[in-house]
């Protein structure tokens, strides 16, 4: 505690030292405010157009809705009817939550064992997981979808195991890196006191691993929630996730219902923004920590 306090004081001093003059500061704030508006603009544009009749979107997206073009919530009701987005959101949520729980629990257990047991076999396991991180999905997409078909895992429950297998690389890598920095003496003391390895893991290692677990959970949640290609190949097309449902709106060549599309984009973005704003501290920290270890 005292240490982190000293650290934040040092950081404050540093920032004071690097501060710009007041005039420059105001200029920079103005420039950054403008840039922020540019960053938010695309999202606001989609929101605006989601209330317009579909015929007035593609040609004049920058026009505000008026008496003629305003269509109320029609795009939302129509789009939800067409895509089944509410059910898709339920599926996305289910898959994301349970995949992330499974990944965090199972890969942290595996990583701990790999880091603590020193043998040729555990080295081999570690390098296989690291290797998996650089393999692009296209390399295995066809054969992976055939394997899940053969095993009858092409559903919401089966895909969780697929995510554990495919997410194992990065997660094991991150957990192993952290476990190696935990002194082994704690575990030795616990073992002398009669703890079993299972108790050691859940009572001693898990509490220490918690910050890394949050990082791994956030990185995997971002991946699974937004993933398009893997669920498209693995799941039945009549039970889509959110990204699949959005892509289905494109339909055949050139026939997009732009109204429904805008409304569905809004509905796809809102949960992400709510989640982001409610735990942005963890998300930003997690991303920074994840990158440093990656």
């Amino acid at each position: 505690m005292a240490q982190s306090h000293a650290k934040s004081n040092a950081k404050k001093e540093l920032i004071e030292h690097m501060e710009v003059s007041k005039g420059t500061g105001i200029l920079m704030t103005i420039a950054l405010t403008f840039l922020s508006l540019v960053f938010i603009f695309p999202i606001l544009l989609v929101l605006l157009n989601s209330f317009k009749n579909k015929l007035y979107i593609s040609d004049a997206p920058f026009a505000l809705p008026n008496g003629e073009t305003f269509s109320g919530l029609f795009n939302y009701t129509n789009g939800i009817g067409k895509t089944g987005l509410i059910a898709a959101a339920g599926r996305s949520l289910f898959i994301t939550v349970f995949s992330v729980i499974a990944i965090v629990l199972l890969t942290s257990m595996a990583a701990w064992w790999i880091a603590r047991v020193k043998s040729k076999f555990s080295d081999l396991l570690y390098y296989m997981f690291v290797f998996a991180m650089i393999v692009p999905f296209q390399m295995v997409m066809f054969t992976l979808s055939k394997v899940t078909d053969m095993l009858n895992l092409g559903n919401m429950f089966g895909i969780i195991f697929v995510y554990v297998g495919f997410g194992a690389g990065l997660s094991v890598f991150m957990f192993t890196g952290f476990v190696k920095s935990i002194p082994i003496s704690l575990e030795e003391a616990a073992m002398i006191d009669g703890c079993s390895p299972i108790q050691i893991f859940f009572r001693i290692i898990v509490p220490v691993l918690r910050p890394t677990m949050i990082t791994v959970a956030i990185l995997n949640a971002m991946w699974v929630w937004n993933d398009y290609l893997l669920p498209t190949l693995v799941l039945d097309s009549d039970a889509p996730t959110i990204p699949m449902a959005v892509q289905y709106l494109r339909g055949g060549y050139g026939s997009i219902d732009m109204g429904a599309m805008m409304a569905m984009l809004v509905l796809a973005i809102v949960p992400i923004i709510v989640f982001y704003l409610s735990c942005q501290k963890y998300i930003i920290k997690g991303v920074a920590a994840g990158a440093v270890k990656g």
Partner: peptide, 25 residues
């Protein structure tokens, strides 16, 4: 002591990794 727990700690992840990564690869 740890080694004996391979089946509990590593096997679930390794099984999923083998089925959905190594074999397809």
């Amino acid at each position: 002591a740890y080694k004996k727990y391979f089946w509990l700690f590593v096997l679930p992840t390794l099984a999923a990794f083998t089925l959905f990564f190594i074999i397809p690869f």
